[in-house]
């Protein structure tokens, strides 16, 4: 599992030109961020700060390796942003203020839970609208099938019943 995550990270990193170009110039920098081991990033990590950082960073998208969070990503920009968040926590800024700081710079895209507004309405409402449409179609079809199936069956069965009763009567048996 760990190795799979590693492989995926590697693939992402190899696709990141920014990371790639930095890694060739500053290998030391890259290896120092090998894992999101807080101990390796800051000299004396404060557990409280690191916990808040982790909670925040896991909700923020790394724009270099787009499907990773800032907490996961090895990209230098993610490291800078983690340090930026540490600084702001140390300055006593609230989580909302820090999120606003990111949104101001990178847009709603940086949030893994984008706010509900005009530009994101389709994103949020879309699945529910599709489910409603699907359910609607399903109900209409079921109803139509039932209505369609009931009328002819009655006709046929009435005719058949007569036939059957006749057949049975011929054999001397009654129902």
């Amino acid at each position: 599992m760990v190795s799979l995550a590693r492989i995926l990270t590697r693939i992402c990193l190899s696709l990141c030109p920014l990371w790639f170009s930095v890694s060739s110039v500053f290998p030391a920098l890259v290896f120092s961020t090998e894992a999101f081991g807080q101990a390796e990033e800051v000299a004396r990590p404060d557990p409280g700060v690191e916990a808040r950082l982790k909670a925040l960073a896991e909700e923020l998208r790394c724009l270099v390796c787009q499907n990773q969070t800032i907490a996961d990503s090895h990209a230098p920009l993610a490291l800078d942003l983690r340090n930026q968040i540490r600084t702001q926590i140390a300055q006593g800024r609230s989580d909302d203020q820090i999120r606003d700081y990111m949104v101001q710079r990178y847009g709603d895209f940086v949030l893994y839970r984008p706010p509900f507004k005009a530009t994101t309405a389709i994103l949020w409402a879309g699945p529910f609208v599709l489910i409603a449409i699907g359910l609607g179609i399903f109900l209409v079809m079921v109803r139509r099938k039932r209505a369609g199936a009931e009328t002819p069956r009655e006709e046929v069965s009435a005719k058949r019943r007569d036939e059957l009763e006749k057949l049975l009567a011929d054999r001397g048996e009654t129902r």
């Binding site: 030109p17 920014l18 230098p76 942003l81 710079r105 990178y106």
Partner: peptide, 14 residues
């Protein structure tokens, strides 16, 4: 040098 202005301009891919 430290990329602070880059962050302020929302730079993510040079």
């Amino acid at each position: 040098v430290d990329g602070r202005v880059g962050i302020d301009y929302g730079v993510y891919g040079v």
